[in-house]
């Protein structure tokens, strides 16, 4: 599997993502600067990493969405290429309109940085097929604006179409997200955004390996 990691000014999980991708896929991902006009053509998976792109000015992800490389990411998403947005990457995806809803300030107004229990609620997709439906995993979260918001109709639709892939485990919602939503798919199921960090739990030295199955799922799907 060939992957690319987009690097925005003030991305800070781009290297975590690159290390996890290289360890698990065996291929070094292309690191693509925000001002570049194109993602390499043979890329199977594009990762939008965590961080504070453009200093979170105006709104998280609002500036990144307008960067040059994002125009190509949006195009490739529409063509069906796989896009994984983690944390700030999820915020960029909602701002870009590639995923519905928005991520607002955490309900308790505090930045949360801790491991959180999640339920894998959906496995009929390329990102989580190697997990068991209903499986509990622990991924770290680290964000101040991860409070997922959408209108009731959108939330019903996401649930009805099996597009809520991760939920915070009962009692562990760290940010007030509607219906405990931690990660969602787009309609075509080729774009996933989530607030928790799977790339930070791919090596036992870092406290866990629950995130590996996501990358293994992608390898299996892409071949």
């Amino acid at each position: 599997m060939k992957s690319a990691v987009v690097v925005f000014p003030a991305s800070n999980c781009d290297r975590d993502a690159a290390v996890a991708l290289e360890q698990i896929t065996g291929n070094k991902p292309a690191m693509v600067w925000h001002a570049d006009s194109e993602i390499p053509k043979d890329t199977d998976l594009i990762v939008l990493p965590g961080g504070f792109s453009y200093g979170d000015y105006l709104r998280c992800g609002a500036m990144a969405r307008l960067s040059r490389v994002m125009q190509d990411v949006i195009k490739k998403a529409q063509e069906g290429r796989l896009i994984l947005g983690i944390c700030n990457g999820f915020q960029v995806l909602t701002e870009s309109g590639l995923l519905p809803g928005a991520l607002m300030r955490n309900a308790a107004l505090k930045f949360v940085c801790k491991p959180v229990g999640l339920t894998v609620t959906e496995t009929q997709n390329v990102f989580t097929r190697r997990y068991d439906a209903g499986q509990r995993v622990v991924f770290p979260v680290a964000h101040g604006e991860g409070n997922y918001v959408a209108d009731a109709e959108t939330l019903d639709r996401l649930e009805g179409e099996g597009r809520v892939v991760f939920r915070y485990a009962p009692g562990e919602n760290p940010n007030g997200s509607a219906r405990d939503i931690a990660g969602i798919l787009n309609e075509k199921r080729n774009v996933l955004g989530l607030m928790p960090h799977p790339e930070r739990v791919c090596d036992p030295l870092l406290g866990g390996t629950d995130g590996r199955a996501m990358f293994e799922s992608l390898i299996e799907a892409v071949g």
């Binding site: 105006l58 609002a62 519905p100 809803g101 918001v149």
Partner: peptide, 8 residues
């Protein structure tokens, strides 16, 4: 286009 996120 930019100043407001009209979702919220």
């Amino acid at each position: 286009k930019l100043l407001a996120n009209t979702v919220i």
